[in-house]
């Protein structure tokens, strides 16, 4: 059962955030311009409002790239996880390659991707794929394997086919793992797309960050950061909601 948090619970959360913002505002005002790199929250809000159209344009690009990258990552990761549970040798071989790819810092691979794929959407989508792919692969594989021994025996006695075991038991068992992976992977895809825009871009949140830095505009930099964080958060919340609506009902009290 999902319980709605009480009013007091929410009041405390809001109070904590407001407290930090007020302290920040006071500290920034006291510093009085000596710390230009950290503008007060009100200045960031003003910049955000003044450049709203700019950010909407940036968001369109970045979110499109992130969504495309995320979807591709899901398809590849889930497909690969199915191969892994089917064949142990394939897993042993391919898993190491996946780990190696995951270990490459995205920022190091962006120039290579730009040379390879050009200046369009493709290299950004590719970085978003790289950023979100691994947690989805690991979690899906674990989820598909999370069927307990007695259930496996029951299905053996019933002489269920591989496909029946997959669709009737493995897949639903993996679903909570999958949604957890999505909650991690979706913000990562936004991050990946943003980093992908650092090289060879004319628009997008990543481009905005770089251009604000080179123009020494901390207010714009902070405002872009807020937008990026909200975009990543939206990805998380989307799958959090989906989780509550679907598997939350039986997972909490399973067994």
């Amino acid at each position: 059962m999902t319980h709605l948090p009480s009013f007091r619970h929410w009041a405390r959360r809001v109070a904590a955030v407001l407290g930090v913002l007020v302290a920040w505002q006071v500290a920034a005002q006291l510093a009085d311009g000596r710390a230009r790199a950290v503008p007060p929250p009100t200045a960031i809000l003003q910049t955000l409002a003044a450049n709203w159209d700019l950010f909407v344009g940036d968001l369109q690009y970045t979110l499109l790239e992130a969504a495309a990258g995320f979807l591709i990552a899901v398809v590849i990761a889930v497909g690969l996880a199915l191969v892994f549970i089917r064949s142990r040798p394939a897993e042993l071989g391919l898993y190491n390659i996946a780990v190696a790819m995951h270990s490459i810092p995205f920022i190091a691979i962006v120039p290579i991707l730009v040379i390879w794929l050009g200046n369009g959407y493709s290299p950004k989508i590719a970085v978003a794929v790289l950023a979100s792919f691994f947690p989805i692969l690991v979690n899906t594989t674990r989820g598909l394997r999370a069927v307990d021994e007695q259930t496996t025996h029951l299905l053996r006695v019933l002489d269920a086919s591989w496909w029946q075991v997959l669709t009737k038991v493995r897949w639903p068992t993996a679903l909570p793992y999958l949604l957890t992976a999505f909650k991690v992977g979706a913000p990562s895809a936004v991050l990946g797309a943003t980093i992908g825009e650092w090289i060879g871009s004319q628009t997008g949140l990543g481009y905005r960050i770089l251009s604000a830095m080179f123009n020494f505009d901390p207010d714009l930099l902070w405002a872009t950061m807020v937008v990026s964080a909200l975009a990543a958060l939206a990805g998380f919340l989307l799958f959090d909601l989906l989780e509550r609506l679907t598997v939350g009902r039986w997972v909490a009290e399973a067994r």
């Binding site: 007695q150 259930t151 029951l154 006695v157 019933l158 009737k168 038991v169 997972v251 399973a254």
Partner: peptide, 17 residues
């Protein structure tokens, strides 16, 4: 087993939640 002659009950009910 393939003729499905067996019915089994384990210690855990193993119901799909």
């Amino acid at each position: 087993r393939r003729r499905r002659l067996f019915g089994v009950v384990f210690q855990d009910p193993v119901l799909l939640p």
